[in-house]
Every structure is written in C-alpha cells, then in structure tokens.
Design a protein around this nucleic acid. Structure first.
Lengths: 295, 295
DNA sequence: ATAAAATGATCAGGAAGACTTACCATGACG
DNA sequence: CGTCATGGTAAGTCTTCCTGATCATTTTAT
C-alpha cells in the first residue's frame, strides 16, 4: 500500500534540484549519470506520478514534484540528524553517565577523575551523587545510576564489580590524645577510650575488634559533625584512610595493625547488562586513572 | 562519516522490540529469521556499537539500543507519513490528515468539525483517534498524527500549539445530591463528600482544591463506568464541562467558582515541521469553526 | 546552417547486497 | 536426558544497483 521510499533516490532528487541537473547531481554524488536517471524513474514508479517534466531538455519539477521536494528534504534531513546523533552517541562524543559513589570517594577521588574525563570526552554529561555504600549498590541495582564506586561488601548476584583500590582502616584522634603518638595500634589498645561510631564502623564487624562497637555510645553519620567531635576531644573513631581528611592538622590517623583491616573499593555495575557507550568510557577511564596513579 | 541508515533494518529492529523476538519479527515482516539477524548486525556495524545484549538467549536492548530505539521509531514513522502523503497526493485524493484528540473533544467537538470539513474538502481522507492528553501529545511528537487537540499542559519544546478554547472545571453529581442545587461551589463545600477521581482530576493539582484528591479512594478512568457510578450515587466527581454529557438528565454540573479552574484546549502540531496541505487545511478549518461558534 | 556540446534516456553486463535454506550452538523445561 | 525454544552462521541464489557505452534531442557557437 505505502511504497517504501529509499533514501538514496530521495538524495538524488534533492541533488538534482540543488545542483541544477542530472549530470551535476551525478558528479556531486559520485555516481554515474544513468544511476541518477534510474533512481528518479524508480521513485516516479513507486509514487505513480512523474516528478520531472519530460520532453524539454532541462530538469524541471512537475507540480507534484514541487509538492514532494520539501517533504523529501525534511525526511532526509531527519535521517541525517538521527544518524549523526547515533554516531556521536556511539563514539562517546555525546551521552550521559550517572554515577554514585561513597562520600569519601566522591569528595577525594572523583574530582581528579572527572576533571581528566571531561577533558578527554567533552561532550558527555555527568551526574555524580554520593551515599553510603549500600545505597550506592542499590542505586546501581535499580538502574538509577549506571556505575557505582563503593565498598565491595560481598559479591551480590545482580552486580558485577571490579576492585579498584584497598583502603586501610585506622583510628582517628586528636593530636594530643595518648594514642596519637603510636605508629600502629592493636585493637586491645582502644579499650577504655570513648569510641564514636560512624557510617564506616560496620567495617569492623566480623573482625576481632567488633566488640569495641558495643562499648560505643555515640553514632555520628555526618562527617563534618564527626570531625568537630574529634577536635573537641570527645572521643576517637575509626575511619578508612581515604575518608580521613589528611589536611586536618589537629587530628591524627593511626593504622590498625592487629587486626589489619581494609575496605576494598570497587567499581560496580549491573550484571548481564552492557553499559551505555558513555558509561563504558567512564569505566575504562576510572580504571586507567587509578592504574596510572598507583605507580 | 555519517552512516546511511536504511529503513528496512530499522523496521526490523522495531519489529523485534514490538513482537518480542527475532522469530516473531521475522514472521511479522514476512522474512526469514536470519534476514533479521543480518539486518541487526548490519545496523550494529554501521553504528559501531551493539544494539542487543549478546549471550543470553533473549532479545534485550543495550542502553545504547534503548537510546536509539525511540529515535529510529520516530524516523520510520516520519518516512511512512511522507510516503503515505505523497501516495495520497499522487492518486489525486488530495491528501490525508491524521488527528488525535482527547476523548471529550473527539466525541463532542469533532463530529461537528469533521462534518463541515468533509463537506468543504470532499477529497481528503481523515483519521481520528482519541487518547488521554499526554498520549495525544506524544502521538504528535512521534509523527503518528499530524494534529492533536488536547489540554495545553505546559509548553513543550517539540510542539507548537494554538489555544482553541477554555473549558471550565466543575463538580458532577446526581440531581438529588445536596450539592446539585448550588449555582456554583467553593472547594471547601466538597469536603466530606465521596470524590471519585478520573483522568481529568490532575487538573486540580496545584490548586487549593488539590487536597481533596487525597481523600478520594476511587479512581475511574473509563467515562461510561464513571457515569454509572455517579448515577448510582456512589459519589461525586470533577470534570471539565466539555467532558460532561449535558444530555444526562439525572446528573448535574455545578461550576467550581473558588478556585475557578479551567483547562485550556489547544491544537498542537510538531514545531519546525511544515504541515501537509490537508493538515494545514484542517488546522485552518478547526480554528475558523470554533471562532464562528463562539459568537 | 552546421558542427559542437550538453541535456537526459536506454541497454547490457557485472559487482554488491539481501534473502533463503539448511545447519549449529546455547539455554529453558519437563 | 531429550525436546523445544532462542538466536547465530554458512553457502547458494536472486535481486538490486551501478557503470560504460550509446542514442535522441535540444541548445549553443561559429
């Protein structure tokens, strides 16, 4: 019923109009002149009406042709737009990645990563949000974000993860605290000191130091508040090194050596679902960036 | 640089999505299944990115594919429209308009409009379908129809709209309902009465009467069912006047005066795309018809 | 007026592409 | 463990499309 108008003949028609003749159009399209003739005839047959006035030697549109031409032009333009956009999307020159990361990574690692990424892929839109590790994992599972950077808790069915770096756990206290002078600490040395729990405290769970958590009466989730409490000398806390702001001159970070604890930070994405081109580029970039940085 | 996307492979892709599998698509397109596979592979090669997830047995789009699919669908729809229009024009049927309208307009306004239109333009084919307001807008955007008559929700980028008329919102209840005797109503007077929500209830959102919706336990989308519920005295509802069938002798329409609410009905078409002659004629006709009718 | 040039149309042959038939690999299910 | 579904692959056939040569007609130049 409705004939299938192929794009090439339409392009021929438009080229004839733009270039002002069959021969010129042929040259413009890098085709031979008969090809143009045939394309036009094919179109005319499909539509059941002549597009060009016959008889006189010149290329002149029929009224029907005049009616068709702008629509054909629009259609071809539409095609080119779609094709170009898809091409741009496929080759990472456009697109969008949504990322979630735990706060420490978001504030200390991502700025550098994103700076070099936007430099390399200027067309890609990026959205970064932070949340605690389980929230990050959940956002990846639900598809709210495509990539997550978070603690590798335990292998989850729906997630695919790549380890990125190890982050050592240590004790944070004020510089004048008795523990501040140590080079490293055994967990027993913490007993008796007021311990403030925070969002990363669950990293102690399952280790010999787990018992310490039960003695702790304070839980502070906000990092700013936590820092203020530590500076006020209200107690000590445990943090991964990455989450400790090393610039703080009144606070000290002392690694826990027995047990030596660390969280493994990794890049997670949904399993069995391939990433968008933009997200794949981001994934490669993150991994390359951290690989470089290790050396 | 920009690959030439042929239409047939695009159709294959869409058929796979719509029919839910390669085999089903093949049957639908009267092709063999390998042809579909090859078409998809051809597309993927041109774009440089896979469109379908490999490995698992099911036909699942990659994110890139999900991004592409709606654009491809739009492009194919555009082609079909151009092809159909040209075909119609070639066969002296002078044209064709596809219109979508919200149900109230389709049932109460369009009969009169179309009656006079076919009288004036006997050669033009008309197709009218109805759907809720967002569906109408979407059909215009995708090019499934050229003209839409719908609630002007908020100005949309891809759409061009012309206001046609204002449609007052009111309360509909049975004639023996306590509210039926009023000439107009303040929204507070509705509290305590069982309110049935319907497809037009979102018109109350953002107004003082919005709170009423939360008390409502019933949502009925079908107008016939809604009328039956009202006649049974199960509750009251709000409707634009145009959606209320004035012939109903057991139901009453009482305007809401505080707040006075109205939906603006308008004629929408795609922006930056010229209408077919037939659609342009229809657009002029609709506007003239309603201008006449106001007086 | 006549030759020269340019227009588009036509035809046969060949290269490229698309479709089909037949067969293969894999995963779900009883 | 076999059966049925999925989609992927390979070789052969057929169609489509393009080219090169040639023709008919009109326009232009001498």
């Amino acid at each position: 019923m409705t004939p299938e108008l192929k794009l090439q003949p339409l392009r021929c028609l438009l080229a004839i109009l733009d270039q002002g003749g069959f021969h010129a159009a042929a040259k413009h399209l890098h085709r031979s002149q008969p090809a143009i003739s045939m394309a036009v005839r094919d179109l005319e047959e499909r539509l059941g009406q002549p597009l060009f006035e016959k008889g006189n030697g010149k290329a002149l549109l029929t009224p029907f042709g005049q009616w068709c031409a702008p629509r054909f032009r629009e259609l071809v333009a539409h095609h080119d737009r779609v094709s170009r956009d898809a091409q741009a999307m496929a080759s990472h020159r456009a697109g969008r990645v949504d990322i979630a990361a735990v706060p420490s990574v978001a504030s200390r690692l991502m700025p550098g990563i994103l700076a070099s990424f936007v430099n390399e892929y200027p067309g890609i839109e990026i959205s970064l949000q932070d949340g605690h590790s389980e929230l990050v994992a959940q956002m990846v599972v639900t598809g709210e974000v495509e990539l997550g950077i978070t603690s590798l808790w335990q292998p989850q069915e729906a997630l695919e993860s790549t380890p990125l770096l190890h982050d050592e756990i240590g004790v944070v206290c004020r510089e004048d605290h008795p523990l501040a002078a140590h080079q490293s600490l055994h967990w027993r040395e913490l007993t008796g000191h007021a311990l403030i729990r925070n969002g990363t405290s669950r990293l102690l769970e399952g280790s010999p130091a787990e018992g310490l958590l039960e003695q702790s009466a304070l839980y502070i989730s906000n990092m700013i508040s936590l820092t203020a409490m530590l500076e006020a000398g209200i107690g000590i806390t445990t943090l991964p090194r990455l989450a400790f702001q090393e610039e703080h001159d009144r606070l000290r970070f002392v690694p826990l050596s027995k047990p030596r604890l660390e969280r493994r930070i990794g890049l997670v994405s949904r399993a069995n679902v391939s990433l968008s081109p933009a997200a794949a580029a981001m994934q490669r970039h993150v991994m390359a960036y951290l690989e470089d940085r290790k050396t």
